[in-house]
Amino acid sequence: MSDVKLKLKLKIWRQPGSDAVGKLVDYDVEVSPDDSFLEMLDQINESLEKNNQEPIVFESDCREGICGACGLVINGQPHGPVPRITTCQLHMRHFKNGDTIYVEPFRAKAFPVLKDLLVDRTPLDKILQVGGFVSINTGGVPDANEIPIAKDVAAQSFDAAACIGCGACVASCKNASAMLFVSAKVSQYALLPQGQPERQRRVEAMVKAMDEQGFGSCTNTYACEAECPKGISISNIARLNRDFFSAKLKSKNVS
């Protein structure tokens, strides 16, 4: 517990609504190095409210790095300078006294700003709704142990399934591409026997939906992997490419 407070200058994106013009606004804060980044924003908001000013709108929920709700671009990096964590897990001890910190929303055509730092990430769900599932109804499924799956295959599938849908991959990609997100879901199922019956249909439908949502194309810069708080590997993107290619060649879907 350090008693020495950090004096920081923040430049935070404020935008009253989706159609409004936004700008960076300066805030001077003193904050304990033990506080998290979002707790610092809480404190700014508390003092704004005390002064009858509108608090900064930003999204966060679980504050333990799993819900994927938080996501700020801090000095140009989604979720800030520390790798493999979400914004809510970033603590102020990683900053130096006197630092200037730029705080911006995730930027992509597919993620319009709704207010200040809060963006709409529902396009990610739209992609899942066309194929991010195994088409089975509740009940009438085989016993869980009737489907043996090699330990390392299950682990690989888990690695892909660990995606928290925060959208940092889109935010970090210079093309605002959602390939890492889509590939993680496609890979989770492509690796498992449960995912095989719909494998071709799934990848075709999800890539189509992804393109319709206005994300850019992947150009293999791998910024997504570097910024992903869960370390989702770009080998999933390779698998997506492979599966897409093979599905397009093999499937009988000519429309």
Binding site: L24, G76, Y102, K174, G216, T219, T221, A223, A226, E227
Partner: peptide
Amino acid sequence: ENKKARPVKYAVNASSKNSTIFSR
């Protein structure tokens, strides 16, 4: 097309921290 996917740019560009100059 990729330019259009991000109509508003970031104020700070930190791409050197997550990708190679060759790729960008």
